[in-house]
Simulated assay, not measured.
Amino acid sequence: MVAAVPEDLARLLVAHINAGDVEAVVALYEPTAVLALPGGGIAAGHTEIRAFYTDLLGG
């Protein structure tokens, strides 16, 4: 699934998280994206974002 408009992103993010599909979640982010993490940290780039979601989803 691809986001055709910005409003699609939240729906796709929730759908991919609910499916436990970390790779689909990561694909929603640009390769150089920065994700603000709980507690004030950041995850920069696909590798760190993947690690965050893998941990979050128990993978």
Rank of each mutant, 00 (worst) to 15 (best):
V5T: 15
D55Y: 03
T54L: 11
G59H: 12
L28Y: 04
H16D: 10
A10P: 08
A44S: 15
I42A: 07
G41N: 04
A15M: 08
A51T: 13
G39V: 01
L57I: 06
P6M: 00
A15D: 12
P38A: 09
F52Q: 08
A4Q: 15
F52M: 01
V34M: 07
P31F: 06
A3R: 06
V14T: 14
R11I: 12
H46F: 00
D21H: 11
E23D: 15
E7M: 02
I17C: 08
E30C: 02
V25I: 14
A43N: 01
Y29M: 06
R11D: 13
I42E: 13
A19S: 07
G58E: 12
T32F: 02
L13V: 04
A3Y: 14
G58M: 03
Y53I: 05
N18V: 11
L35Y: 00
V26G: 08
G40R: 08
E7D: 11
T54Y: 00
V26M: 05
I17S: 01
L9D: 01
A15S: 13
D21Q: 09
A27V: 06
G40E: 08
G45M: 03
L35R: 09
L37E: 05
R11S: 11
V14N: 09
T32N: 15
Y53T: 08
I42Q: 12
G45P: 00
G20H: 01
P31K: 12
L12E: 08
V25M: 05
G20F: 06
I42L: 12
A27Q: 07
V26W: 04
V25N: 03
A19W: 06
T54H: 04
A19Q: 11
A19H: 02
G20I: 07
A44C: 01
M1F: 01
V26Y: 06
T54W: 00
V34C: 02
N18W: 02
L37S: 05
I42G: 01
A33N: 03
A4H: 13
E23A: 15
Y53G: 10
A3I: 07
G20Y: 04
L13Q: 12
Y29E: 07
P38M: 02
L57G: 09
P31Q: 06
R11Q: 11
A33H: 03
G41E: 10
G39W: 02
L56S: 12
L56M: 14
V26T: 13
V25A: 12
D21R: 08
L12P: 14
A36E: 06
H46D: 00
L56P: 03
A33M: 06
G45F: 01
N18E: 15
